[in-house]
């Protein structure tokens, strides 16, 4: 009963999904829509037009080398803007199609900047951020920057797909227990969770795990320890699972939502 109450209390308020000109964006959108439908949370889709790409397209020697054809094509800013706009529209249509005939509440925004920065700015505590993995944003960087859990998606995540939670021992165990329980419920894992823990000593890691177990006794916890960021990356790669990065220090309840909100250019809400 207590657990149920906790789960209900800690149910994500919103699912914020980041979309960009990346192949895994569609998988991220599907995963987010799926989780939102299951948890009856609101889905916020944020398409980020990568400012770097626009800058790059403006360079006189900008050439795009095709991923499959290996042919180098010239580009300019206008063409890139057009393409990004088209992708944004396509993503919006895809979302509308997914939501058709379902009770899913959703909204759609377009912003310009860097994907992760814009996404993290748009998310508030108790939100779940879903995004395609970006090389510069390592789990460590994400954990220290985010104030909401971030699910990194490479391919489709279905209910029951095993995931690994990456976090630092700086995260208070009580908060970690709450978030892990929440994540387990969201992803349909029947309270079995693997955690890749960034911690300097194994003893400290064991203590941290014990504290978490105390706070969430019905959670079956498997902890994999990494002493530094490189080791954490290796561990995560070995596990070959989607990663949920837990924030190191989430702000307390009542923190303002989307304090550093992006500059939405368009907005649409489902009826």
């Amino acid at each position: 009963m207590a657990r149920n109450a906790a789960t209900k209390e800690l149910k994500p308020r919103r699912i914020v999904v980041g979309l960009a000109a990346l192949p895994s964006s569609r998988a991220a959108l599907r995963a987010a829509a799926d989780i939102a439908a299951r948890t009856q949370a609101e889905l916020i889709a944020l398409f980020v037009e990568d400012a770097n790409l626009l800058e790059w397209a403006g360079l006189p020697f900008a050439r795009e080398v095709g991923l499959t054809s290996a042919v180098a094509r010239t580009l300019d800013t206008v063409a890139m803007e057009r393409r990004l706009r088209s992708m944004a529209q396509e993503a919006q249509l895809a979302l509308a199609e997914m939501a058709r005939g379902t009770p899913l509440r959703w909204s759609y925004r377009v912003a310009r900047g860097a994907l992760m920065t814009e996404l993290l700015a748009a998310a508030a505590e108790n939100d779940l951020v879903v995004a395609a993995a970006v090389a510069e944003w390592t789990p460590r960087r994400l954990a220290s920057s985010a104030h909401a859990a971030v699910l990194l998606v490479q391919e489709l995540v279905r209910p029951g797909t095993p995931v690994v939670a990456a976090c630092s021992s700086a995260l208070p165990p009580v908060e970690a227990a709450r978030m892990l329980q929440n994540m387990s419920g969201m992803l349909g894992h029947d309270h079995e969770v693997t955690v890749a823990l960034l911690c300097e000593s194994t003893e400290e890691a064991a203590r941290w795990a014990d504290e978490v177990r105390k706070s969430a006794p019905d959670l079956r916890l498997h902890v994999v320890t990494a002493r530094n960021e490189a080791e954490l990356q290796t561990r995560l790669a070995a596990l070959r699972r989607p990663v949920v990065v837990l924030p190191e220090a989430p702000p307390g309840p009542g923190a303002p939502q989307a304090a550093r909100s992006s500059r939405p250019r368009s907005r649409r809400r489902s009826p």
């Binding site: 000109a21 400012a51 770097n52 790409l53 800058e55 403006g58 360079l59 795009e64």
Partner: peptide, 19 residues
């Protein structure tokens, strides 16, 4: 990483150097 492939750009700081 571009929508259909890859591109190279000079770096400036954390971002790409503008034209």
């Amino acid at each position: 990483r571009t929508p259909a492939g890859f591109g190279f750009a000079p770096i400036k700081g954390d971002g790409v150097m503008g034209s």
